[in-house]
Amino acid sequence: MTEITHLPAELRPPEPGTIALVTGASSGIGLETARQLRDHGLVVWVAARDVERGRAAAAQLGADVQFVRIDVSDPMSVTEAAEQVGALDILINNAGVNPGGEDITGTSLEQLRNAYETNVFGLIGVTQAFLPALRRSAHPRIVNVSSGTGSLTWNSGPNPQFDWERPKGGGLAYRSSKTAVNAVTMLTAQALEDGFKVNALAPGLRRTNLVPGMSVGGDPTEAATGGLRLAFLPDDGPTGALWSWDGTRVPW
């Protein structure tokens, strides 16, 4: 079988009544992803830990968009959200943090725990909580928002994508947590073979709240469209891979 290295540019139209949930959807890539899902006619759940901001985001997006509180680091809120949402076809694990810190000499254990608690353990907890609903879907899809900075291949060799980056070894907490997300994605895809498509998205450098004061980076709209490519994959589409926002496959 020929390995798929690039996703189709055109999005496959979703079936009527498809239900999607996006975590960390009160701003940035998450909010834009929810907007695009709505524009494609989906029923969308905007999930966020801040109730006021989450409700405002859902109200901004209008009809067929509902808010559900999810703090991915709070298992109780995740369980309650899964009960509230009920049916689900598409789960987009977008919630994430960048706690700062630099290389091994300048990153605290607290910063590492913060990154892993949200970016890794929170992602796993949300996925586990919504698996019963996804198993009832005819076309279950899981998209984990990761990062190209988590690619061991890209980090260990010359790569033009990182010309803007900090010195080698920097960003230990965030980058290593995204490497873990990539591994979780691959192993989840291997475990869920019954119609599931589980993939990770490298959204590229974007102007979001993840790095306060960032003056560089692209529009979150492009990254969100990349996520929709994975959310709308056909049943013969790829699973268990890391994909760039532009549809090209990223090496582990």
Rank of each mutant, 00 (worst) to 15 (best):
L230S: 06
G240L: 07
S177M: 10
R38G: 11
D39M: 12
A200I: 11
E15N: 08
L187V: 12
D194K: 09
A200R: 13
H139P: 00
T185K: 12
R166D: 11
S137Y: 00
N199M: 10
G24I: 12
V126S: 06
G148V: 06
D89H: 03
V126I: 11
P251H: 08
E10C: 04
H40D: 13
R207F: 00
R49F: 11
D194S: 12
L11F: 04
P140M: 09
M186I: 15
G157K: 14
R166T: 06
G17Y: 06
R113C: 05
G30F: 06
E10A: 15
Q60P: 06
N199A: 12
A191C: 06
E10L: 13
A20P: 01
S176Y: 00
E3V: 08
W164V: 04
E52F: 08
D219T: 00
V120D: 10
R49V: 08
T221F: 03
T221P: 02
V211Y: 01
D39W: 05
V145I: 15
P220H: 02
L42M: 13
N155I: 04
S108E: 08
W164I: 10
T105D: 14
G195W: 01
V198E: 06
A59H: 05
Q66G: 07
G171N: 12
S27I: 05
V145N: 14
D50V: 05
L112M: 15
M186Q: 14
